[in-house]
Amino acid sequence: MTIELEPTASPTTMPQAAAREADASRAPTADAWKHRHVLDVDDFSTDEIELAMRTTAEMKEILARPIAKVPTLRGRSVTILFYEASTRTRVSFEVAAKNLSADVVNIAAQSSSVSKGESLIDTVRTIEALGADMIVMRHAVSGAPYLAAEHFSGNVLNGGDGWHAHPTQALLDLFTMRERLPGGSVRGRKVVILGDILHSRVARSNIWALTRSGADLWLCGPATLLRGFERWAGATMPGSARFTVASSIDDALADADVVMALRIQKERQAGGLLPSLREYTARFALTRARLARAKPDALVMHPGPMNEGVEIMPDVATGRQSVITDQVTNGVAVRMALLFLVSGVPLVE
């Protein structure tokens, strides 16, 4: 039996680079991770996104092992602090932390401006006093993890804040696209995010991740749920490609490589943003007929939880082109990668 190994070294295997690396494993390297927190994708460079992707691939290798567990974060304590109900993101982070042998504490908290309970800062200080090294946080108010990061001496990972950001979701989406697209890259690929963009932190973080990775990004949905995004599309963001905003689903889906549907909530009807969910489904749901406008092997994605029959039809969600379950698996790998990467950043900067 002969096994030929693929070269596993990084593409930059120049003698000089390798020589530098030879004794540099204890020192910061050019592509060392420098972010103590994961708050959004906006401050990650293309190189850093690349490092996150590479590390995620290594974590997927661990997930494929008979014992999908490594001792990397043994003795570290991860507190999962969720102010909003969520099953999949919370469980995904928990599994990721446990795969790295971290100790996990779950806190389901409540917070509002009216019922003044313990303040977020007090909660963070308490968690720190209880010995947490990392906090994974979900909050209904945009920016809340930044406040936590300011008052916590460990690492903060944003598990979703208000309408603002959901960085691990965007990175798992990107990883899934790269894994499934021929060529392993989203550069020049037409990616459509479809639905309630206005209220979506998934869309916002994906804008950063995808435009920075050179995708041809399209945002599509009812005009009332795209408010403000034309301005962003028209703004120059250094290091990022432009994106397109469209209310015509036919234009958006034409020759698309990836279509990601977002959850639509019933509250949008009560808020006067939509005449009815029925009308939304009639005009914007991802159906088999609409998907036919995209490329034949276009990927179908959804960050979940899905309302099947509302924004996406069941046969599309579970069909040949769907990579929705890959997203879930890759979510664990991405979160493992980020937990690992931030754990190495010195706490005193």
Partner: peptide, 16 residues
């Protein structure tokens, strides 16, 4: 509303 409706609020996910 949390911030002026405009580019900054859209990017930061603040209610305009």
């Amino acid at each position: 509303a949390e911030a002026n409706e405009g580019l900054v609020a859209t990017v930061l996910g603040l209610r305009g």
